[in-house]
């Protein structure tokens, strides 16, 4: 696939790839997609809680990015813009779910959340402990309101700085800081209650 590049190589020629993609160069855009598709996908997966919908949203995100790439200004960090497009698509979906009368993802009770959440793709190299931990974390994430979930995911999965998260979500860095602290406290509380008392070997 595309694992041969190192991160620094990728960063070094990102500007050039972006410039070509903005000019409508499809191979350059394809390179951009390959570079970011997994990150966008795993953010969306944890944000909406459904693998299939996350796949659709990932595709939707990149189509939207391709069509509006000319509106993006190189002064703004591309990753923040990309994740903003992804996040807006996800929030549309969450709103649509609500208007369709389905339970919003963040209103699921923990047990139902567990049922609604697909298993993380079982991979042979992934240890059982990891999968258990991820399942418990998924339930903790599902218990958070979307505004806390997105902040937490941008920080923990994408490792964005507070400034970058603020740019992505169009909120202040102070809000990022307080929302992240609240999200962590709530996620940890849920996670510990989920895993702490009971241990199934």
């Amino acid at each position: 696939m595309f694992g041969e590049r190192t991160e620094s190589d990728a960063a070094a020629d990102e500007d050039e790839v972006l410039a070509r993609a903005r000019a409508g160069d499809r191979p350059a855009f394809a390179a951009l997609v390959r570079r970011h598709q997994d990150r966008v996908f795993r953010f969306l997966l944890r944000l909406v809680g459904s693998r299939e919908e996350a796949m659709d949203l990932t595709q939707e995100t990149f189509l939207k990015v391709f069509q509006s790439l000319s509106e993006w200004r190189p002064e703004a960090p591309f990753r923040a813009w990309l994740f903003r497009v992804a996040r807006n698509a996800a929030l549309d979906l969450l709103r649509r779910r609500r208007s369709l009368g389905f339970l919003a993802f963040d209103e699921l009770a923990p047990d139902e959340g567990e049922a609604a959440w697909p298993d993380p793709a079982p991979r042979p190299e992934q240890r059982l402990d990891d999968r258990r931990r991820i399942a418990a974390l998924d339930r903790a994430l599902a218990s958070l309101p979307a505004e806390q979930r997105e902040v937490l995911l941008l920080r923990e999965l994408e490792e964005m700085s507070y400034a970058e998260i603020a740019a992505t979500l169009a909120i202040s860095e102070g809000t990022v800081k307080s929302r992240l602290a609240r999200a962590r406290a709530a996620a940890l509380d849920h996670y510990q209650r989920d895993t702490g008392e009971r241990r199934d070997a």
Partner: peptide, 16 residues
């Protein structure tokens, strides 16, 4: 650390 292990997740196909 739990979140970090979520970073192993991939889309699973060549979207490009």
């Amino acid at each position: 650390a739990g979140f970090a292990s979520m970073r192993a997740e991939t889309l699973g196909y060549d979207l490009a």
